[in-house]
Design a binder for these strands. Structure first.
Lengths: 205, 205
DNA sequence: CGTACTTTTGAATCGCATCAAATCTGGTGG
DNA sequence: CCACCAGATTTGATGCGATTCAAAAGTACG
């Protein structure tokens, strides 16, 4: 589990001020690692470069529910001014993560207007993304969810499945069996094609 | 449909700088009014004081899907830097709305660090709220969705149904029939009580 | 009083969850 | 290099819960 300052190129280079970047550390974390737990005082903010992190809460029945699934982006923006985390952050696939000291970040946001503007822009995109996820979860059929996923999260009708079908099924709010069956049916009807870890929309008029 | 400057107390008084507040207008809008349409260039940002506004998009099948339902709060934060709206905003219940010129708002955000900080805080809350909605939509049974709604959106186990059960059903991603039946069943099993437009969680050990 | 909408109940159907089990796959240690 | 194991993938059978379609009763409003 190596730690190092970030010296390499990352999406954060264009977002974070230099002073903040110098205090960030880069980590390789194994599956099942907990980034933080519900109730803890926020000390770090995390940015996922690769792998996958979920934010989870226990439902009334004790089942974990995925609040957010991040393969590339921030985890726990909401904890910025929060006195404690409101969910657990779990590494569900071996991940590369950048760790940002939250106090330094908060200070920079209040003193660097340009940075604050970029941060607001980032939050706006997150809001948009979450609205799309809500739209997807509202769909009644698995087929609609899959097509919506490819159309909104994919690029040029191609969606990259990074973390396995099982994991994707959870994100779509369905069982992995239902997803496997639907993917097979969509392929059979030539609506999509599967290439390795890619779901490709077949062109039709 | 009167227009007037805001001179009265509103939640925006503590958020917006005085200079921005002076350019805001207060509107009473009737049900079915469109605040904006997909593709239009954003000129205004809206804050709902009362009534209800939804953000909607048409699905591939032509059914409207509710992306956001606002009874009290901002609509279309994401349009701040966006060249055009990515959904429709519809008044679904007669509403009081504050209209904010988006350019003025953007200027203020880039020159007033305190204001930017408050704005970031507001966006963080929105992100939290959307994650909760995703959690709710992921639930498989109508019963779980209803109980989750009361627990997370309600206060002290009491949830106020402002805009009718049919509308609420859409928000939960279910049919109104299913919701009516589930509410009746929950009342029969003494899990909740209904008082006028209130859903009250029955206390149990 | 009539019209439009909401609320409610009924019956039939269907898609998905659930439970089960059989491959397949990659990785590990002997 | 092979045996083995854990997890992913796939297929099957069954049942439940929600959708769907239908219709009746209630309610608000002009």
């Amino acid at each position: 589990m190596e730690d190092e300052l970030i010296k390499f190129s990352s999406p954060l280079n264009a977002l974070l001020p230099q002073a903040v970047q110098e205090l960030c550390t880069h980590k390789h974390l194994k599956k099942s690692t907990l980034l933080f737990k519900t109730g803890e005082k926020p000390k770090w903010m995390f940015f996922v470069l690769s792998g996958e992190v979920t934010l989870e809460r226990l439902s009334q029945h004790g089942d974990p529910v995925v609040l957010q699934r991040t393969r590339h982006g921030f985890v726990s923006e909401a904890s910025l001014q929060s006195p404690k985390y409101h969910c657990d952050a779990v590494v569900v696939a071996d991940a590369e993560i950048i760790q940002i000291p939250i106090q330094t970040l908060a200070d920079a946001l209040s003193t660097d207007p340009d940075f604050a503007g970029r941060w607001i822009n980032m939050l706006n995109h997150e809001v948009k993304r979450l609205r799309l996820q809500c739209e997807r979860l509202s769909m009644k059929s698995v087929k609609d969810k899959v097509l919506h996923l490819i159309n909104t999260e994919g690029q040029n009708g191609k969606y990259q499945v990074n973390t396995g079908i099982k994991s994707l099924a959870g994100e779509l709010g369905i069982t992995h069996e239902a997803l496997y069956r639907t993917l097979a049916a969509l392929e059979k009807s030539k609506t999509i094609q599967r290439e390795d870890r890619l779901l490709v929309l077949t062109n039709r008029q």
